[in-house]
Structures are given as structure tokens and as C-alpha cells.
Write a protein that binds this DNA or RNA. Structure first.
Lengths: 274, 274
DNA sequence: TGCTGTGAAAGCTTTCACAGCT
DNA sequence: AGCTGTGAAAGCTTTCACAGCA
């Protein structure tokens, strides 16, 4: 086997390869903690992963609306601005509670507040960026990250020439200091923007420093302990998915004969162009 | 405003908000006006969206293995390196055909070839990057994009000082030239790395230039014609999802301490002892 | 014997469509 | 009248588990 690493993850390791999908913190094998069917108090816990991602989008749209002076929105307005349909939006919002007024709509700031609370944005999460190349720079200068609440509190790189250099107003530290610095500054989210070969080692150090959430830009499947959450953004994968759609479209086009047949639906016209 | 733009989907427009994270579901994309495509006309083209994203990952892992001299892999090996379970991997591969040998495994290069074919990587897709800031630079220098097959063939920006300047060996053009240049160079994928305010206008120009696939890094919901595919990567959203998990974890941990939780939202916080 | 390929079951998500407030 | 909140249906995905071939 060649694989990326000791692939067998070893004890207590899981591999993370969630594109967007995030595996699910749910312990697949070991039942670890969660044997509790518990009371209906687990409302917040049961928000579908997919809905969480959309809540973040709604929040952005709502913030923009609030900035423009809007005080209320209907599910129809908000959903179309967010690019989803209204039923989905209402369902998503229902997961965090009932904050709308029937016949009227939602109050913008109430919604903003509730979504922020749900996403845990009420207390800041210190972010560390590792790998200060072009991408790292971009991330470090992202202005505290839009949607605020994510101050970049530490930067790391291997390059000696970068150590101590301020980037976006923060000095770069050497990656060997990751565990120490992360612990000291209470970093809760680590962003990996290093070359793939260095990613796993960096990740291990982040974990050693107490980081439990990682956003990985390196094209590698990271192996992490069970309790660490990893999300990844992979450029090549995104492009390949687009490529797939381009190819599919091309196929469809040539497959659909010039038959101007239009819509003859209602009939079992299995066109299958030879 | 409320919305980002003509929000009403208008004529032939749809809004796109797919997560990069494909993940989760991935396609939160299309909605609104689905021109009800002939439901029955598909063939092998019906590979689940989620599987497509994973195929790209398998491809990366397989390439690495091939580079190390491996000639065959079992579903177990490949799946663990890719961070998924073997059943899922086999199911995913089954969508593209039966290229394995029972009792043995898969031949690495056969699989590589088939996945590349499926993803449409056999013929190059010219890529244009718009917005040459830190992120744009990072993208332009991504070395033809890992997983090759995606040559960056055009760069655009508004900044007059950048026009003509070579970045990663390619001169920057003004965004007004997007339609022309894209058409001339046969760009099939456009990457938007501009500030949010400029994204929609840039997207419109890309579409005018014949681009049918867009990868959007700007935190905006783009409105595009029905035939255009959009995928988005949103830093803030990713961080917020991680934040949600951090918060959830924290809640679980205390699970007993009342912790003066602000709004209890109409639910009796039953403190489950356990 | 060992490992792939796959129906079928189980789990999620999305969509429908309508009861219930304002 | 208008719009939210939600069971229930419909659609996807993932997981199971095993027949089938090398």
C-alpha cells in the first residue's frame, strides 16, 4: 500500500474526508458517548448537518438585509435571496425554534440573533492559520473573516524567513510552536493551508495544541482522533466536479437528436438516442 | 434590498448556493424553476452527485498509489486511504462500471483511467481566474491545478495597475474583456475570487463569454441561467459550521450545568443527570 | 478462499400541502 | 387573507450482507 500515511489510523484515529459533507461527529463504530436517548431537550443537537450549512448562508443574507434597514422578511423573500426554496427555509428555521409570526414573516434581528446563537457565534473562536503562502496570506487578511466572530489569532509557517514577519498585523511563528501557542492563545479552529506533504504533521500538532476543529485546504485525507472535526476544501475536487457536469452536458447535447420534439411528456418516450 | 439581485429568478435564471462542501448534500444548487427535464432519459449519466465528489478523491489517492508503484488495490485499502468505508467505495465504483476482479481487487491504472473518463478529465478544461488578489494569486499559481487537466488560461482584474502584469506566467486582462477573451480561449470554467460586490457582474460576463461552470469564492448567491453550473466555496460558512460543532460539543460536555443559558426558548431545560 | 458487485433495508433530506395563527 | 410551522410523502444516500466469480 502506498497510501497517504500509516493509513490504518492507529488507535483512536479516524480519517476525515468530508467535502462539504463532514462525516458526522457521530461515532461510527464505537458508541462512545451518546447512549442517552435523553429527553426532548436535545433539540439543538438534532439539527441536520445540511441545515447547519444553510443557516450560515441565511445569516449572511439576513445581515445584509439588516444593514439595508429591513426589519422583517417573509420566508419567500429570504429563501429566494439565499437560493433555496421557501419550504426548505422554513423547515431549516423550524429546527432552531419558532421565531416567525404567521401572516407576517420573521423579524430580521431576532433571526440573526437566534442563528448566531445556534451556530455558537456568540463567543469568539480564535483561529490559527498554518502555511503562509499565497492562500495563507489571503486567509490571514480576510479581515477577521467575514461574518465576524473569527479573529485570526496565530500564524505559522516553516520558512525561517517568515518567522516574526507580521502578516495582517500578526507575527508568524514557527510550526514547531503550534502546540504551545495554540494552547496559550486558546485557539479553537485551525486552518491548514500548507502543501499536502506537511498537512498531517501540522494537523497532529494542532490537535496536540488542543484544537478540535480543522479546516483543511490541503489535498490530503487527514487522520484525526475521534473528537476532532475536520472539514476540507479541495480545489481540484471542485474543479473535477464541474468538469463532470461539463462532460455530462456535452453528452446530453449530442445524445438529444435534433428532433425538435419538444415536450411530448406524458408518454413513455424513452428517447435514448442510440 | 433584500435580495442580491433580481432575486426572482427572473427569466431563465436560477440562484446557486451549493456548498463546496458538497458534502452534505451538496447540491443545494438548483431549485426554483426546474424545467422538468425528461425524467426518463438518463443512462449511466445518473451517478449520484455525492458519488462524483468522492470519485475525485479516489482519483487523487489512486494517482498517489500509482506513483508509488502500486498496481492493484482492494476496496478495503483504497477506501481507508480515501476516508470512506469499503461498501461506499464499491458502490461508488459500481456506478462507473465493473472494473474490479473478484477475489483480487482493482487494477490501479484501469481505475484511474475510468474515473478520469467519467469526470471528463480526458480533454482539458481551460480555466479563467477573476480577481487577482491574494486568493487569485494563490489560484493562478496553483501549478495548473493539482490533479492536472485544468490549465489556467486567463486572468482578470479591475485594477489598472495589474493589467498586463504577468502572474504565474500569464498576463492579466481587464474584466471588461472577459466575454471576448473567454470566448477566444475556449474557457470552460470560471473561478470568481473577487470581492462580493463584484461577483455577480463578473459572473454575468463569464456567462456572456460562454462559460458554463463557475467556482465561486465570493460570499454571494449568484444568479445564473439554467444551464450554468455553480459551485461555491465560502470560508465564513465553513468556519461557522465548525463553530456549530464546537458549540455542540461544549453543550454536550456540560450537559448538566444550567449555565445561565440565555433564552431557553420555551422548552423546559430538563437537566438530565445521568 | 477472498473480494467484488449489488439488491434491499435503513437513514437522511427535500418537497408537499395544509392546519393554525395573526 | 397571508404566511408560518410541520406531519407525511417522496427522493436521495449510506449501510448491510451475501451471492457470485476468480
Amino acid at each position: 500500500m502506498a497510501a497517504q500515511r500509516g493509513q490504518r489510523g492507529g488507535p483512536g484515529r479516524k480519517s476525515a474526508e468530508s467535502a462539504a459533507p463532514v462525516g458526522s461527529g457521530a461515532p461510527a463504530a464505537s458508541e462512545v458517548t451518546t447512549p442517552m436517548p435523553a429527553v426532548d431537550e436535545q433539540r439543538a443537537r438534532s439539527i441536520p448537518e445540511a441545515a447547519v450549512a444553510r443557516l450560515a448562508v441565511y445569516l449572511r443574507v439576513l445581515s445584509a438585509m439588516a444593514e439595508q434597514g429591513a426589519t422583517t422578511v417573509s420566508s419567500e423573500e429570504l429563501s429566494s435571496s439565499a437560493g433555496v426554496n421557501s419550504a426548505k427555509l422554513r423547515k431549516d428555521l423550524s429546527y432552531i425554534g419558532s421565531y416567525g409570526t404567521r401572516g407576517v414573516g420573521y423579524e430580521v434581528d431576532v433571526l440573526v440573533g437566534q442563528i448566531e446563537r445556534t451556530l455558537g457565534l456568540t463567543h469568539n473562536h480564535q483561529v490559527a492559520v498554518v502555511g503562509i503562502g499565497n492562500l495563507g496570506h489571503a486567509l490571514a487578511n480576510y479581515g477577521g473573516f467575514p461574518g465576524r466572530g473569527f479573529p485570526v489569532a496565530a500564524l505559522f509557517d516553516v520558512d525561517e524567513d517568515l518567522i516574526g514577519v507580521p502578516v495582517g498585523g500578526l507575527a508568524v511563528n514557527h510550526i514547531d510552536e503550534i502546540p504551545l501557542v495554540c494552547a496559550q492563545r486558546g485557539i479553537s479552529i485551525g486552518v491548514i493551508a500548507t502543501p499536502p506533504a506537511a498537512a498531517q504533521a501540522v494537523c497532529d500538532r494542532l490537535v496536540a495544541g488542543g484544537v478540535e476543529s480543522v479546516l483543511n485546504f490541503a489535498p490530503v485525507v487527514l487522520q484525526v482522533p475521534e473528537h476532532v472535526e475536520v472539514r476540507k476544501v479541495d480545489l481540484a475536487v471542485e474543479l473535477q466536479i464541474l468538469s463532470f457536469h461539463v462532460a455530462r452536458r456535452a453528452d446530453d447535447d449530442e445524445e438529444t437528436e435534433p428532433a425538435a420534439n419538444g415536450q411530448a411528456k406524458g408518454v413513455d418516450r424513452v428517447v435514448i438516442g442510440r
